[in-house]
Design a protein around this nucleic acid. Structure first.
Lengths: 82, 82
DNA sequence: GAAAGTGTGGTTTAATAAAACCACGGTATC
DNA sequence: GATACCGTGGTTTTATTAAACCACACTTTC
């Protein structure tokens, strides 16, 4: 993937994660406990700094109590081929 | 994540990928060209042998012409906390 | 039977995600 | 001001993904 689009995709994912976490009124540390993911990394996910694996995505979805696909439920306009 | 659930999640993902690829009547090699992903790895994804990153998931979604969340659109019963 | 396409499975390298840490400054709450 | 929680950002190690190859057996088509 072109690195620009990859970056954009990760940022979009991060926004969804951030939105869902805030909707549940969870702090980074609180979500970390629910997810079994180290708290210091969740912000990195939300900023799009990490290209996470789907296993970790599943962890986050479980902790948030949402279906995994919700974390990818963002506008995809930027993804289309040129 | 417990390794059993992780494995199950990856297998579920693989099934979605396999279903969508066949629905488009694409061979591994044909999809590989569309995705810019090496053909020899797509079957590994479909078998749940790889814990792929979301960047690669995006690649596959673009190649298949579906929204990324479609690749995670599987039953999630097995994901619930005990 | 030669050529082309296919599924399958193995290997190797470099890049990087996962995971676990830590430390700092800020903000409440007592 | 002590305690507790928070966001932030950095580091390090290990595991593994990504990516690129290859070879083989099987079909199908010419």
């Amino acid at each position: 993937m072109q690195s620009k689009k990859k970056k954009e995709a990760l940022v979009q994912f991060g926004k969804r994660l951030s939105y869902l976490r805030k909707a549940k009124k969870l702090s980074f540390r609180q979500l970390a406990v629910l997810c079994d993911v180290d708290y210091s990394n969740i912000k990195k996910f939300e900023k799009g700094e990490k290209n996470i694996t789907i296993a970790t995505l599943m962890e986050l979805a479980i902790g948030l109590g949402v279906h995994p696909k919700e974390l990818l439920n963002f506008p995809d306009d930027f993804l289309h081929r040129d």
